[in-house]
C-alpha cells in the first residue's frame, strides 16, 4: 500500500496524461467517425469506397501495430511530432473507424422515410443527414459509443509501449523501483475502472434524456 501512497505524484501525473489523451483522442475520433459515416452513407460512389476502405483497414489492424508504425515510421518520412500527440492522432483515427460503424448501424436503424421526407422538403443530402438522420441515429447508438469511449480509455495504455508516460507507464516505472506489482497495478486498474464507471453513468443518463418516443 505504501508503494502506492509514496508515489502518488507520479500516479497523478500519469492519470492526467491518460485523461488528456482520452479526451483529445475521443474528440478526434468523433469528428473522424462523423466524416466517415457521412461519406459511407452518402450518394457519391468514390467517397463511399474510400470510407469503406478506411474502416476496413483501420479495424483490421491492431492498434499497437499502428502506434509503433506511426511513432517509428512517420519520422522516417519527415513527419515529426511529440510522442503523446502522435499517439493521440493514431488512437483518434483508429477509434474513429469504430465510431463510424456504430453511427452507421444507427443510421440503418432509422426508417428510410425520415431521409426521404427531409429530401422531399428540399433539404440537401448533407442537411437531411445533419438535421434529421444523424440526430436520430446518434440517439440509438449512445450505448455502443459509450462502450467505444471505454475501450478507447483502455487503449490509451498501449501508448505506454511507445514511450508515452501515461498511467500504465507510470505504474510500471513505480513498480521498477518498488517491486510491488499487485498494489501498484491494482491501484492503476482502479483508476481506469473509475473512468469507465463515469462513462457508463454519463451514457446511462444521456440515453434516458435523449430517448425519442416512437
Amino acid at each position: 500500500m505504501s508503494a502506492l501512497l509514496d508515489h502518488l505524484p507520479e500516479f497523478w501525473q500519469g492519470l492526467v496524461v491518460t485523461l488528456q489523451m482520452t479526451v483529445a483522442s475521443f474528440a478526434g475520433a468523433a469528428v473522424v467517425g462523423l466524416v466517415i459515416v457521412a461519406m459511407r452513407v452518402g450518394p457519391v460512389p468514390v467517397l463511399r469506397a474510400v470510407a469503406t476502405v478506411y474502416v476496413e483497414t483501420l479495424q483490421n489492424l491492431p492498434l499497437l501495430v499502428l502506434l509503433v508504425l506511426a511513432v517509428f515510421g512517420l519520422p522516417e518520412i519527415g513527419l515529426k511530432a511529440g510522442l503523446t500527440t502522435t499517439a493521440v492522432v493514431v488512437i483518434a483515427l483508429y477509434e474513429g473507424a469504430y465510431i463510424a460503424e456504430a453511427l452507421r448501424s444507427g443510421v440503418n436503424a432509422i426508417s428510410s422515410g425520415q431521409g426521404e421526407a427531409a429530401r422531399a422538403l428540399g433539404l440537401t443530402f448533407g442537411q437531411s443527414l445533419r438535421h434529421v438522420v444523424l440526430p436520430q441515429a446518434l440517439r440509438t447508438v449512445v450505448q455502443p459509443i459509450g462502450n467505444i469511449f471505454i475501450a478507447l480509455t483502455m487503449n490509451t495504455s498501449l501508448a505506454a509501449a511507445v514511450g508515452v508516460v501515461e498511467l500504465t507507464a507510470a505504474a510500471n516505472r513505480v513498480n521498477l523501483l518498488e517491486a510491488q506489482p499487485i498494489p501498484i497495478f491494482v491501484g492503476a486498474g482502479l483508476a481506469y475502472a473509475a473512468i469507465a464507471a463515469c462513462a457508463g453513468f454519463v451514457t446511462g443518463r444521456l440515453e434516458r434524456r435523449l430517448a425519442v418516443a416512437r
Binding site: 450518394p43 426508417s111 422515410g113 425520415q114 426521404e116 421526407a117 427531409a118 429530401r119 422531399a120 422538403l121 428540399g122 433539404l123 440537401t124 434529421v132 440526430p135 436520430q136 440517439r139 425519442v212 418516443a213 416512437r214
Partner: peptide, 25 residues
C-alpha cells in the same frame, strides 16, 4: 438528376407520405 438543383425543385413540390414520416426527434 441530383444535387442542389434537385433540392430546389423538391422545395417547390410538397409531398405527403403514406406513413407520415414526421421527424420523430
Amino acid at each position: 438528376a441530383e444535387g442542389r438543383a434537385l433540392a430546389r425543385l423538391r422545395a417547390d413540390v410538397g409531398m405527403v407520405f403514406q406513413n407520415f414520416n414526421l421527424f420523430q426527434h
